[in-house]
Design a protein around this nucleic acid. Sequence first.
DNA 1: GTCTATACTAAGATAGAC
DNA 2: GTCTATCTTAGTATAGAC
Lengths: 201, 201
Amino acid sequence: MTNSQRTDRAPATPPATARGGKRERLAAAAARMLHEQGVEKTTLADIARAANVPVGNVYYYFKTKDELIEAAIGAHAEGLHAMIASLEELPTPQERLKELIGGWVRQRDLAVQFGCPFGTLCSELDKRADGLDRTAAEVMRIFIDWSEQQFQAMGRDDSRDLAVALLAAYQGISLLTNTFRDPELMVREGDRLERWIDSLA
Amino acid sequence: MTNSQRTDRAPATPPATARGGKRERLAAAAARMLHEQGVEKTTLADIARAANVPVGNVYYYFKTKDELIEAAIGAHAEGLHAMIASLEELPTPQERLKELIGGWVRQRDLAVQFGCPFGTLCSELDKRADGLDRTAAEVMRIFIDWSEQQFQAMGRDDSRDLAVALLAAYQGISLLTNTFRDPELMVREGDRLERWIDSLA
DNA sequence: GTCTATACTAAGATAGAC
DNA sequence: GTCTATCTTAGTATAGAC
């Protein structure tokens, strides 16, 4: 996630000129709008409105729509790192994985409305000619790698396959929860996955 | 899947005027192009070209792009019914489900390139204002219902949950196979699912 | 029933005033 | 650094010739 737009004269704080962190607001708004409306249906005007930034001002921060999408991927990556850091505080890998699943279940209403925020993005970016789908894949890989570590810590020698299966189960049930508009699908699959985690020890 | 465009004077055969079954060709081409390029990036011109039908002629058969999408959903439904009919010829539910999984694995290169033909469509239709996502959900339900019957025939009282889990596993691994451009993910998850089927009996 | 030309609309992007 | 006005492109859809 390069940051070529920023002057970076004052590290760790936004440039004095960027009052109110408009760049950050635009990136966060982009992530939200791309999830809710999809990549192709979301216009720069939609994102500007959601970020409370005048439409014509967007191009000062991002030269193209692609750059805004890249910033949205970066926002997802940050959220992912925060989630992982929070899970790391739990003592055992089983607890960490089950808390992960619990988080998915608690977010089920969002899945009902729009599917998985990051999975739908990966799916849509694949249809675009730009290389943003590769950037998104890198972020997805961070998550798989972390899950693999958890299964490894549980002593499984098929940890990679299990990590892929866990993420696939979540992506798939997110799609079905969204397609059928039924939050219970996520609840029941979450229960099943937690029992599965317990059975692996 | 209404057919209001057709005169239906000669049931079970296309109207004499529709030489070469252009309507059917357009529906099949639409299904293919929507999968490969996504709903929003696919233009009517793309579909017309893929179907070998002159661009301006499309509107004679379909009044709007939405009607073409609906016809594509219908084409998917037909393919689904054909697949189910073929699986029904196998003697046991275990064999039917494992052959289903085998079919998914054999189609892995398509998943690498574009994801699941129908799952990506459901995901994209959700972002549109029209009600086509509900039509797609009906088709998806046909598949779940059939899977549920198989698990029920195996004597499982949690057949619905298992059917949902199986379809979710496929949708999820299709997304990951596509995101990571790695057909092996589908192969390994297919193996895992077949072992899972065996373990349920 | 088939096809061409074109009207209409909307979105991405840019120039330049403030 | 902020914002308005506008250019350009592209896609859906329609009118009407053949």
